[in-house]
Amino acid sequence: EKQQHLEAAEVETRQLLQKLFPKVSLPSNMSHSEWICGFEKMAKEYLREASGSEDVKALEQKLKEAEEMHILLQLECEKYKSVLAETEGILQRLQRSVEEEESKWKIKVEESQKELKQMHSVVTSLQHEVERLKEENKEVETLKKEREHLESELEKAEIERSTYVSEVRELKTQLNETLSKLKVDQNEREKVAGDLPKAQESLAALEREIGKVFGDANVIENSDVCTDSELSEKRRNVAVNLTQDVGHLKKLLVSISQMLSKG
């Protein structure tokens, strides 16, 4: 805005000088200071050529006024330049402040980007951890099912064990009963084994007695010494003894037969 005011003042100065010296003309693309210096030289040249006339005096008066106006404009320009310099200083300070703030914000943005990258890394790590926990959860579910299956099998095994224990107890009872029977059988066998020699002796004695009886009978028949009553008494005694011995032998034989059938 200050620059625009300065440019407007320069244009106004040129227009005023052109009005005072319409015959003096310079290119408009020159800088303002060059244009003023050139215009001053050409105006003085024009005044020397037109010296002595009243118009010259009037022009000199106008030139003097123009110079005063130029001085005022120069002062105004200096004022504008000072204001412009101050404005530029303010703008430079603002620019530095903006650059400092921009640098601070740039640092903050970089830190935010670093934090964002770290957060992305943490999120990725957490996602991997979640996936790992899901897999572990699947394994836990599998182990839980296996544990339930093992508990079921253990219950079955416990039931079977109880059944086996009952069966073993029954078998133990049967074994004890069998051992008792075997012990009784063993005692009976030992008794039979002890009675067997007696039976054999009785049988041998019986055979001898029978042989003796029949031998005596032959002797009596051949000698005719004994009477009929004596012979009958001897025969009765022999018959009683034989009957007893035969009964005893029968009992032994029955006992032996029973042992053999049990064995």
Rank of each mutant, 00 (worst) to 15 (best):
Y46S: 12
I36N: 04
Q61F: 04
E54G: 08
S31T: 11
P27E: 14
E49M: 11
E40K: 08
K41V: 14
D55G: 02
E54T: 09
V56G: 01
W35R: 01
W35P: 02
S53F: 13
S33K: 14
Y46C: 06
C37G: 08
E45H: 10
K62M: 00
L59S: 03
S53K: 11
L26H: 02
M30F: 03
P27D: 14
K57W: 05
E34C: 01
S33R: 12
S53V: 09
M42W: 06
Q61P: 01
E45G: 08
E60T: 04
P27T: 11
H32Y: 15
G38F: 07
C37H: 09
L59H: 02
E54W: 03
P27V: 11
H32P: 01
S53D: 11
S28P: 09
K62Y: 00
K57Y: 06
G38D: 08
E54N: 12
G38V: 04
W35T: 02
K57N: 10
E40S: 10
K57C: 07
P27N: 10
F39E: 00
M42V: 13
S28V: 12
K62V: 00
S28T: 14
D55Y: 00
E45Q: 15
S51W: 05
M42E: 15
K44C: 08
E40Y: 06
L47R: 05
R48H: 14
P27W: 06
L26S: 02
A43S: 15
I36T: 10
S51L: 06
K44I: 14
M30L: 14
A43T: 15
E45N: 13
M30G: 00
M42N: 13
E40V: 07
L59W: 03
E45M: 06
L26V: 09
S51F: 09
A43W: 03
E49R: 11
F39R: 01
V56A: 07
E34P: 00
M42Q: 15
E40D: 03
G52D: 09
V56P: 00
A50E: 13
E40C: 05
R48T: 14
E60R: 01
K41T: 11
N29E: 11
G52F: 14
G52R: 09
E60D: 04
L47P: 03
I36K: 09
E45V: 10
D55H: 02
L47K: 04
E49C: 07
R48F: 14
G38W: 05
E40A: 12
H32Q: 05
K41A: 11
A50S: 15
S53L: 12
E60W: 00
V56F: 08
M42A: 15
G38A: 15
N29K: 09
K62S: 03
V56R: 02
E60H: 02
C37F: 11
K62D: 01
C37Q: 14
